[in-house]
Structure formats: structure tokens, C-alpha cells
Design a protein around this nucleic acid. Structure first.
Length: 299
RNA sequence: GACUUGCGA
């Protein structure tokens, strides 16, 4: 038997959101999960506004939200980002059984940080009786977003003192803060921690290492690491291209660009940026057109 | 069976 939720899921994956949405409106019984899947799809497509609107529509139809749906709503507010909407979402949860839900609170920490209120994010984090690794990662990410390196390192130590093991999310964040500080020594220290944790092969971590080395003036080390990678993704390639552009290594820029298996808008933009930086506006324009010729839409 | 945190221009 094919259920409504399975159909919605399939349409979200294989068709357009519009088709999924119109199929959704024809479902005779819409359960919480089908609402959650559709709201989630809008968030993934960077349409937080529509996701919030769907939530309102859901309430009008008398559907009671559960913690999954609240998380999706909070997520949508973070994606917009819209602090008012986020606070409204938060106040809807206060007084419900979900107020103490760790997943919901983790989402709130993230949402407040992304909506510009580090203060509220921190308040939520502090108020949590029980924290998991995601809670710690969310607050570390928040401090990273605001460039508060001292706090980032402080929370990193506290997380470990609390008995948690930093994971690949933690390490990507730690590396980001080293990158923005330009602190190669701290970066190397974190790299050591990554190795000790056995996470030296996780793509987001290696990519963050590539970025850290190349932006801290160690492009050669970034290259060595890049060459040793067993698997690479779009981020790995673009990180290297951007690094070579910054160091004006024209030949390497082009070599890397020609090797990318699949070029996305970020890799194209890194290349075009290189030409703009060198003052070669005609080539920049050529590549801009070529990009569209290959079906990549400018953003 | 659906939910929260991380990497590139």
C-alpha cells in the first residue's frame, strides 16, 4: 500500500515542490508526518517563508504540532532568518510538553544565533538541564558565527570536561574559528585532536582543514592534504581553487578547475572571482556566460 | 517511518 506520506516524500525527492504541494492538498488524511515532510522540503529549498506559512495553515486545519514539526518551524525561522517569527515559534512551545525537549532546545539555540540574538541563544543553552553533544556544537557554532574565539575555546574545554567527545561537527567549527583568527598554531593543534579522534577522513573536517591551511598561509600543506584525500566533493575543489586564486597561482587555478567532476555555482564563482581580481573582466564575463551555458544558474 | 549542530565563492 502506498501511503500519503510516502507519496509526498517521493514527490519532494523526485519532482517539484509545487507538484508535491498540490498532491498534498488532495490527500484526504494529512498526518503529522506528511506536514513535517512538506515543511521540511520548503526549508531545504530555502523557502523559509512558505514553510512558516504552511505551519500556520496546518494549525488552521486543527492539526496539533509535535516536536518534529516544531523543530521544522524553528528551522524555517533560522533559515529565513526572522527573529520575530522565531520568537513567535518559541512562545508557541512554551507551556507545552515540548518545552523541555532537548531537540527543540537545540534547534532554538541555533535559530536565535542565526537570527542575530546570541544573547537569547546563550540563555536557552544555559537554561537546558540536560545537554547533548548537539547542544554543545550548537553553542560553539553560535560563538563561531559571532567570531568570539575565547568563548569557542572555553566551550570546547567545557564540552570535554562534561565527558563528551568532540565529533566532526565540533571540529569543523573549531577549525573555522582558527581560520578566521588566522591562527595556524591553534589550527595545527586542532588537527592533532582530529587525528586522535580518528576523524581525519571525514570530508567536512578535511575540507575545513584545507580551508584553514590555505587561508593561514600554508597552501602547500593544503595541497598535500588535498592530494592525499581518498574522496573529494565540490567543497574540497572550490576550497583549493579559492586558495590558489588568493595566492595568484593561475596555472593551478585552471588545472583544478578543469579537474572538477561536477561544477557548481560556487566553483564557477571562485574561478570568475580570480579573473575579476586580476582585472581580466572580459574573461570573467566569458566564464560567466559559459557557466550558464552549462546550466548553472547564477545566484 | 519524519525533527536539532559543522566545511567552499
Amino acid at each position: 500500500m502506498i501511503t500519503g506520506t510516502a507519496l509526498i516524500r517521493m514527490y519532494c525527492n523526485c519532482s517539484t515542490l509545487e507538484n508535491a504541494h498540490s498532491l498534498f492538498t488532495t490527500l484526504s488524511e494529512k498526518d503529522a508526518m506528511s506536514w513535517a515532510i512538506l515543511i521540511s522540503a520548503y526549508v531545504q529549498h530555502d523557502n523559509g517563508h512558505e514553510a512558516v506559512a504552511l505551519f500556520e495553515h496546518m494549525q488552521q486545519e486543527g492539526m496539533m504540532p509535535n516536536n518534529y514539526i516544531y523543530n521544522k518551524l524553528i528551522n524555517a525561522c533560522a533559515a529565513v532568518p526572522n527573529l520575530d517569527e522565531g520568537q513567535r515559534a518559541h512562545s508557541r512551545i512554551v507551556g507545552t510538553e515540548f518545552e523541555r525537549c532537548i531537540f527543540v532546545n537545540n534547534a532554538l539555540v541555533d535559530m536565535y544565533a542565526k537570527c542575530g540574538s546570541l544573547d537569547l541563544a546563550h540563555k536557552i543553552f544555559m537554561s537546558m538541564m540536560k545537554k547533548d553533544l548537539v547542544s554543545w556544537n550548537a553553542i560553539i557554532t553560535a560563538f563561531t558565527q559571532y567570531g568570539l574565539a575565547d568563548e569557542v575555546f572555553k566551550q570546547y574545554e567545557k564540552l570535554k570536561a562534561d565527558g563528551f567527545k568532540p565529533d566532526e561537527y565540533t571540529f569543523s567549527c573549531m577549525l573555522s574559528i582558527c581560520t578566521s583568527l588566522g591562527d595556524i598554531n591553534m589550527g595545527r593543534y586542532i588537527h592533532g585532536e582530529v587525528r586522535n579522534a580518528g576523524l581525519g577522513c571525514r570530508l567536512p573536517v578535511v575540507n575545513a582543514l584545507l580551508d584553514m591551511y590555505s587561508k593561514c598561509g600554508c597552501l602547500e600543506e593544503a595541497h598535500k592534504l588535498f592530494n592525499s584525500m581518498g574522496a573529494r566533493n565540490d567543497v574540497s575543489w572550490t576550497t583549493m581553487i579559492a586558495g590558489c586564486v588568493r595566492e595568484r597561482r593561475d596555472a593551478q587555478v585552471l588545472k583544478h578547475f578543469s579537474c572538477i567532476p561536477r561544477r557548481d555555482v560556487f566553483s564557477w564563482t571562485a574561478l570568475i572571482q580570480g579573473y575579476v581580481q586580476y582585472g581580466h573582466h572580459d574573461e570573467a564575463l566569458d566564464f560567466f556566460l559559459k557557466m550558464q551555458g552549462e546550466g548553472v544558474r547564477p545566484n
